[in-house]
């Protein structure tokens, strides 16, 4: 990676951290919808698979370093043993798959609308499907409720995540019209 790549990786990691400071919408007593998963989608759609996976790894490293970088000022090692740790570690494959699909799907000559739709699809497959596949089994294991119930417990978050995928795609298309960044 060039130094510019490192700068972009660090920057998108910082964007994910900054999005954690945006007030969360409380849902289902204490489990909030945060904008951080949208940050992961944005990082992936803008940077592409490898640098996005690096950016979310940076955020995870900052958590391990005891910095309160997750939504609601959470951080420190306690997060890694918590019930939602699977969703945190799932950011790495989620970012990689989203970025990879964005790289493969989006062709520059198509209309803005088509490109936005393609990027939304990438964000849904990577940022929702892959992420939940990582998060739900961990939740089921740690809370001992079984896969089916863990799946049901995660469903209320899907509408919010779909909205985040659309916003991330719209923003990405506009940002990439202004600055040329090759996905890698």
């Amino acid at each position: 990676m060039t130094t510019r790549d490192l700068g972009l990786v660090a920057l998108m990691a910082a964007v994910i951290v900054a999005l954690g400071a945006v007030p969360a919408i409380p849902l289902a007593a204490g489990v909030p919808i945060t904008l951080q998963s949208m940050g992961v989608m944005l990082a992936a759609l803008i940077l592409g698979p490898r640098r996005a996976a690096a950016a979310v790894s940076v955020v995870i490293a900052l958590v391990a370093l005891g910095l309160p970088v997750l939504a609601g000022g959470r951080g420190g090692l306690a997060v890694f043993a918590g019930p939602t740790a699977g969703f945190l570690f799932g950011w790495v494959p989620a970012a990689f798959v989203t970025g990879f699909l964005a790289m493969v799907l989006e062709a520059t000559e198509k209309s803005t609308l088509v490109r936005t739709a393609q990027l939304t699809l990438a964000a849904i497959v990577g940022g929702i499907v892959v992420l939940y596949v990582c998060g739900i089994p961990w939740l089921a294991f740690v809370v001992e409720i079984g896969l089916a119930k863990a799946f049901m417990a995660s469903l209320p978050f899907v509408p919010g995540d779909l909205a985040k995928a659309i916003v991330a795609a719209v923003v990405t298309v506009k940002v990439r019209q202004a600055v040329a960044i090759e996905r890698k």
Binding site: V9, A10, A14, V17, A18, A21, V58, L62
Partner: peptide
């Protein structure tokens, strides 16, 4: 370089808030 990236990320957070 990994350490540099972590340091940069920490430094970029206030920068983003400033720009916003």
């Amino acid at each position: 370089r990994a350490a540099l990236t972590l340091t940069l990320a920490i430094r970029f957070v206030p920068l983003i808030v400033e720009e916003a």
